[in-house]
Every structure is written in structure tokens, then in C-alpha cells.
Design a protein around this nucleic acid. Structure first.
Length: 708
RNA sequence: GCGCGGUUAGCUCAAUUGGUAGAGCGCUACAUUGACGUUGUAGAUGUUGCAGGUUCAAGUCCUGCACCGCGCACCA
């Protein structure tokens, strides 16, 4: 017996060595797998943010995918798991801006676009290495030779190509719309990047002036400086007589011309049943304005300050302006009511800035335009059909409903951002000319659009851009559509839906066959782990303390797809003990001579277990499979079968047989310790050193003869 | 408002298509220098949130309710 078994299992000493062994074997790369691996199987890694560090949620993602990939590889598939990182435009941009401000007290505008982008790129490069190390420590059997980055040369070509194709099909347009403006990040964001928070607020009911006959309610009196109409419901008897009339008046220093219009969208029950229409600062109001051909007055600028040249208000922050106007209303005896309400505030996901709806000239993806070469279907329909038609399965199933619900409410996707780090929009302008193409057109005076693209635009291409698209590579033909997309349920809209959109339109194919969604990992109190709370546990510190295999088990066991889980020391300790138990089982088995014949009854029992576990693996019930092999090894094999063999050495051959094959079943879950133990057993069996990682998955075979 | 999930042992959670409610941690007692960073043996704690219904049989299916959480919409 190897003397290593005389000491307790030491994960620290083992893990890096084993990972190196796997890496050097070349088997992470499907091209190097033995002959029996023919049928392809592929997963692309959801690329973690290049500037971030791996958190426990990221570790869960790695673990689930590694389990799937290791299982498929052992089953004999030509298995590719493709790694990459995401440039995460807004997140990275704002992170570097923060650092710049902290270290040099400067903004990006102080140092200029070029210098800023260089700074970001340097920062990203430094971080990617650290991230890659973290991922490998979790045991990820990723093919690093194919590593991609959402912002490298090839992916940039993919982005430009995608933009051009969509533009040519009329699916991308430029227009002035009410957008979600983030005053803090100084950029627009998409609807999905908004996070709602509740806060106490006041609902003011007032009259614009003494002579104006209708009172209205608002939570934002300061925007009323830009009102151009008052809308009422066509059936509302109270206001019938005013419909169509126009009133000129002065409101807090602003000269307003208010037309009374009738619109179905107005809720008779709300407030006074009349709605002050501010076309420049409300989505709904802009729609009303469009229907009634109303002018639009912009009140607020990009810094959330009053833009109008009104003495005492110009340049004042919106919140201050609100107080000023309320005071003016009170002074002029126009304020009728002031109620306390809870208001839902829109904030920007990345910066926390309060969203200011502003009319801006931006680029959009049209989700409702019929597409010629897709039977006149819209992008919305393409997204819908892929899932509704069963070509893509979402697990757990309930998320399919959320997916459909999201699509039904989907509006055009704003894809341009005013930040500097990201894929530059491939559009050039010269006077009144607009050129959309892969590269700058010939001739002078062309200027490229200063904006960059929403990071999810490039992420949406990931399943095929990572495989080389637009070039028709061998990898693309072999591995696309990918088999499984595994990610957190929190980015189903951001990412999963956008990938389906892009792949369906650009390739006419689904990007993946199955979507497996995992839940959030929470701390022991059940709170969401967040960086701001400071409890964002580094998975590597857990690995150091308990071993990676224990971390993997603790993350997996008892956690079904889509459900949130808690991670605490108790669970980690339990699986650390299991690793040690396994180590001692190995020590005991190795100390026995391989005597006797196989016992039919015990082998039959083990065969049944194997069939169960295999079926669990095939049906994505990893959390159950892991628990079964754990319970069997400890409480059946160690507690009963080994104990029995102590009095009956003729069982020893059976011990070897079951334990060696158990290592295969356990390997996807606890790859390090099983590989380490296997190395001692493989030699004991036939003197050949083989990696457990590419051993064929155990297939039950009948044992002849009676039980011992 | 529309929709989804949860409610099971002191705690954290399982229970694959309906078939005697389980695990880990914790707790109690006993054993043990044992292959074991201990581990093993035995044990206690449950009207599976509440009220009905279907069924030979319900944690699981149906109806209603309560509480916790989430998504989307509205948010003047």
C-alpha cells in the first residue's frame, strides 16, 4: 500500500497536482480523447465577468457543469466544455471609473476615451488570470485551448457581422425614444437592467393654476413644467365638456399650453381621474402624445437637473426643484392634497443611479418587425416558438412560463450605450450620410458612432461566436447547437432569451437543446450573497479549509434545479468528513488481499444502485445521485459490507469490485479524491496507470453463480 | 392586477410516475485505540401551514384560505 494512506486525506496537497495531471493529459480537449469518443457533446461556459472574482454562485455553476461534462465524457461522448470571460461593458466600465476616482480623483472624461479604454484593458487582463486560476481550483475540466473572450478580435468580428445583418434586415434602427437614462453612469440602459426598490413618497394633488378647471395628481411635480396636455378618460362625465379645449397658463414660472385630450389609457379611479401629460419624461405620456400629436418639452437634463431657463429652477436638482414647486403650489393655494404612498423607484442595476426617463437618439432592436426570410415571423415570435415548439426545453419547467410572460411584455431593445468600454457600434456618419458595415468606409471625414453596444448584444452570440462564427469552422459544425446551457435563473431574460433571439435569426437554429437553471446560493441566514454586504465568500477560502470535493458536494446535495440554497459550515464539514471516510475505506480495501469470488447478491444490489444513479444523471437529478452514492458508500458499503468482510475474507474480491466501480460513480461529484484513490487502485489491478477521468462509466453486468 | 415558488423533525432541506414520511447537523445513551481528523450501535422529537374534496391509498392530485419569497405589469 502507498504510504500516503497512512495519513489522513490532504486536499491541499492533492488537488493542484491532480488538476495538473488532467490538464497535461490533454483530455479536456475533445480532439485528444480516445477512439471510443465519437458523438459530440458540448456546453459553453457562461462567461464570468472578466473583472470580477469568482463568488460562490459562480462556483455552483462551475460544479454543476463540470458534473455534467465529466459524466458525459465517461459515457463516451466527444465532450467539449468551452471556457471564456465576458468583458461586461457597463460593469467593467463603472468599476474602473470607481478606481480612477478613488486613486486619482478623476473621471473618465478627464483622461479621455483612449487613455480610459487602455486602463480598462489593462485591468481586465490582470483579472482574467486570477479568475482562470479560481475556476481551475474548483476542478473545472474546461478545454482551455479554446478559451474565448467576448471582446477579442474574433468576437468583435462576430458582433459587427451580427449588427450588419440585423440592420440590413431592418431589425436594427436608430430613433428618438424615451429611454432609461442613468444619470450616475451617464448612459442609457435597457428595461432589463432596471432594478426596482420601494421607498416612501408623496402623491400631490393640485391645480396648475386658478383658472385651470381640472386637478391632477403626481409624485413628480417638477416634471409638470414640461406638460403639454391633460388626459382624461373618454367616458368620464366630469371632464367631458373640456375635451378639445386648450388652456394657456403660467405654472411655477413656466408658460404652459395645455390641451385636454381623451385617451382610453387613463384610469378613471386613480387620483382625480385626470393625468398630466409629460411627453418628454414618461413612456406612457409619450405614447399619448404620439396619439394626439402633442408637442414635447424636455425639462430635465442628463444630470437629473432642470434644463428649462426658469429663474430659481434652472440647473437645480430634480429633488430640490420638487420642493420649490410644492412650496409654490402651497403659496398660491393650488395644492389640494398631499398623501403618503410607497413608490417603486427604478434604479440602474450596476450603478444604483435613479433612472430618469429621457428622450434620446439611440439604437434599437425591433422585436415586432416581420422578417422576410423567416416566414414573416418577428423576433418575438422566433423566441417564443423555439420554446413553445419544444425544440428548447427549460428546466425546471416553471421557468418556461416566466419566459413566455417576459416575451409577451417585451418592447424594443435599446442596445446603444454611452460608455466607452465595449464593442463600438459599426456605423459611420458623414454629413447626412450613414454607413453601416464591418469596417470604416473609404473616403475621408467619416466619423464612427461614439456609442458602444449593450454587453448582452455580444453575450447573445456566445454559443456560436465562441465556436468561431461568422467563420464556418469545423467546431461550429460539430458542436452547435450546444447540448446544454446551464446558468442562474436570474439571467434568463438578459441572456438566455437574447441567445435564442440571436441564434434563431443569424443561424436559423436554436443555440442549445436544454436550459438548466440553478438558483442562488445564500448565506446561512438565507440572505442573498452580495458584494455590498461584504459576505461574498471566496470559494477558494472554502476550498482551502474543507477541500474542493467537500465544497462541490455541499453545493450540490439536496439542491434541486432552480431552487435557492444555503451554504454553511455544517454542510461543508459533513462532506469533508466524507472525503476522509472515503480515504479510509480505500486504505482498508487496499490492505486486503484480492481473494474470493464475486458475490452475486451484493453485485446485484450495486448494479441496481448504478442503474438508479445513471437514470438520475440522465434526468438532471444530480442532487439525488450524489446523495445516493454517498449514502451507499458510507452506510451500506463501509458500515455493513466491510464489517461483514472482516469475518469473511472471501468477500474481498467483491470489496475491490464494488469500490473501484463506486469511484467511477462518484468521480463527477468528487473528482480530486476519486482520481487520487483510483491511481492506487488502477496500479493494483493491472499495473496500468489510467486516468479515472476517461474511464468508461460503470455499466452493470450480471454476475454468474450463487452468492457466497 | 397577472403569474410562479415555498410552508415536512429543534435547524437546513430531501422524498424521481400517488404506495409504511427520510438525510445532514444538533440532542440522549452506550461502545470503541478501532481501516477512521473519530467512528459505530441504539434512541427521541412529525396531525407534512389551515379547511374541504377525489382515491383502496394523498407530503404528492383538485378547490378555497393564510403567511413568507420571487418575476412581470401598473405606479399620473
Amino acid at each position: 500500500m502507498h504510504e500516503k494512506f497512512l495519513k489522513p486525506y490532504n486536499p491541499k496537497e492533492t488537488e493542484e497536482r491532480i488538476y495538473e495531471l488532467w490538464n497535461e493529459s490533454g483530455f479536456f480537449n475533445p480532439d485528444n480523447l480516445p477512439e471510443r469518443h465519437q458523438e459530440p457533446f458540448s456546453i459553453v461556459l457562461p462567461p464570468p465577468n472578466a473583472t470580477g472574482t469568482l463568488h460562490v454562485g459562480g462556483a455552483l455553476m462551475i460544479v454543476i457543469e463540470d458534473i455534467i461534462v465529466r459524466y458525459k465524457r465517461m459515457k463516451g461522448y466527444k465532450t467539449l466544455w468551452l471556457p471564456g470571460t465576458d468583458h461586461a461593458a457597463i460593469a467593467t466600465n463603472s468599476k474602473v471609473e470607481k478606481i480612477l476616482h478613488k486613486e486619482e480623483g478623476k473621471t473618465r472624461h478627464d483622461i479621455g476615451r483612449e487613455a480610459f479604454v487602455l486602463k480598462v484593458e489593462k485591468f481586465v487582463e490582470e483579472n482574467r488570470g486570477a479568475l482562470k486560476y479560481q475556476i481551475s481550483r474548483i476542478g473545472a475540466s474546461l478545454d482551455w485551448s479554446r478559451e474565448a473572450f467576448t471582446f477579442d478580435e474574433k468576437r468583435n468580428l462576430a458582433v459587427r457581422t451580427a449588427f450588419k445583418k440585423m440592420y440590413d434586415a431592418g431589425l436594427i434602427y436608430r430613433g428618438t425614444r424615451i429611454t432609461n437614462w442613468d444619470p450616475k453612469g451617464q448612459t442609457t440602459i435597457s428595461d432589463d437592467e432596471i432594478v426596482y426598490t420601494e421607498r416612501p413618497s408623496k402623491l400631490y394633488t393640485f391645480k396648475y393654476s386658478k383658472d385651470f378647471p381640472i386637478a391632477i395628481s403626481t409624485t413628480r411635480p417638477e416634471t409638470k413644467l414640461g406638460d403639454t396636455a391633460v388626459a382624461v378618460h373618454p367616458n368620464d362625465k366630469r371632464y367631458q365638456k373640456y375635451i378639445g379645449q386648450t388652456f394657456k397658463l403660467n405654472f411655477a414660472g413656466a408658460d404652459l399650453e395645455l390641451k385636454v385630450v381623451a385617451d382610453e389609457i387613463v384610469d378613471i379611479e386613480f387620483g382625480t381621474g385626470a393625468l398630466g401629460v409629460t411627453p418628454a419624461h414618461s413612456q406612457i405620456d409619450a405614447e399619448i402624445a404620439l396619439r394626439h400629436n402633442l408637442p414635447s418639452i424636455q425639462v430635465i437634463n442628463e444630470y437629473a437637473k432642470i434644463k428649462l431657463p426658469i429663474p430659481g429652477l434652472e440647473g437645480v436638482k430634480t429633488i430640490v426643484a420638487r420642493e420649490t414647486i410644492v412650496a409654490w403650489l402651497k403659496k398660491n393655494d393650488l395644492l389640494i392634497k398631499e398623501e403618503d404612498i410607497t413608490q417603486r423607484i427604478s434604479t440602474a442595476e450596476r450603478t444604483g443611479g435613479i433612472i430618469e426617463p429621457l428622450p434620446k437618439l439611440q439604437w434599437f432592436v425591433d422585436v415586432n418587425k416581420p422578417i422576410n426570410n423567416r416566414d414573416g415571423k418577428t423576433l418575438k415570435q422566433l423566441m417564443y416558438d423555439a420554446v413553445a415548439g419544444g425544440r428548447i426545453i427549460i428546466l425546471p419547467e416553471r421557468f418556461e412560463k416566466e419566459y413566455f410572460n417576459w416575451i409577451n411584455n417585451l418592447r424594443d431593445w435599446c442596445i446603444s450605450r454611452q460608455i466607452w468600454y465595449g464593442h463600438r457600434i459599426p456605423v459611420w456618419y458623414r454629413k447626412d450620410e450613414v454607413f453601416v458595415g464591418l469596417d470604416k468606409p473609404d473616403g475621408s471625414d467619416w466619423e464612427q458612432d461614439p456609442d458602444t453596444l449593450d454587453t448582452w448584444f455580444s453575450s447573445g452570440l456566445w454559443t456560436f461566436s465562441a465556436l468561431g462564427w461568422p467563420e464556418q469552422t469545423k467546431d461550429l459544425k460539430t458542436y452547435h447547437p450546444t447540448d446544454i446551457l446551464e446558468t442562474g435563473y436570474d439571467i434568463i431574460f438578459f441572456w438566455v432569451a437574447r441567445m435564442i433571439l440571436m441564434s434563431e435569426f443569424l443561424l436559423g437554429k436554436i443555440p442549445f437543446k436544454t436550459v438548466y437553471l440553478h438558483g442562488l446560493v445564500r448565506n446561512q441566514k438565507g440572505e442573498k450573497l452580495s458584494k455590498s454586504l461584504g459576505d461574498n465568500i471566496d470559494p477558494l477560502s472554502i476550498t482551502d479549509q474543507y477541500g474542493t470535493d467537500a465544497l462541490r458536494m455541499a453545493l450540490i446535495v439536496g439542491v434541486g434545479p432552480g431552487s435557492d440554497s444555503k451554504l454553511g459550515p455544517d454542510k461543508l464539514k459533513a462532506y469533508k468528513n466524507f472525503a476522509n471516510k472515503l480515504w479510509n475505506i480505500a486504505r482498508f480495501v487496499l490492505s486486503q488481499e484480492r481473494n474470493g469470488k464475486l458475490d452475486k447478491e451484493l453485485i446485484d444490489e450495486f448494479n441496481t444502485l448504478t442503474k438508479d444513479i445513471t437514470s438520475d444523471m440522465e434526468n438532471y437529478r444530480f442532487y439525488i445521485a450524489a446523495e445516493k452514492i454517498y449514502a451507499y458508500l458510507w452506510h451500506r458499503f463501509a458500515d455493513e459490507i466491510i464489517e461483514k468482510s472482516k469475518k469473511h475474507p472471501e468477500y474481498n474480491a467483491t470489496l475491490y469490485y464494488i469500490f473501484e466501480n463506486s469511484l467511477k460513480l462518484l468521480h463527477p461529484f468528487m473528482p480530486f479524491i476519486t482520481e487520487e484513490i483510483w491511481s492506487s487502485f488502477a496500479k493494483a489491478t493491472d499495473g496500468q496507470a489510467r486516468l479515472l477521468m476517461i474511464e468508461p462509466w460503470f455499466t452493470p453486468s450480471e454476475v454468474e453463480g450463487p452468492s457466497i
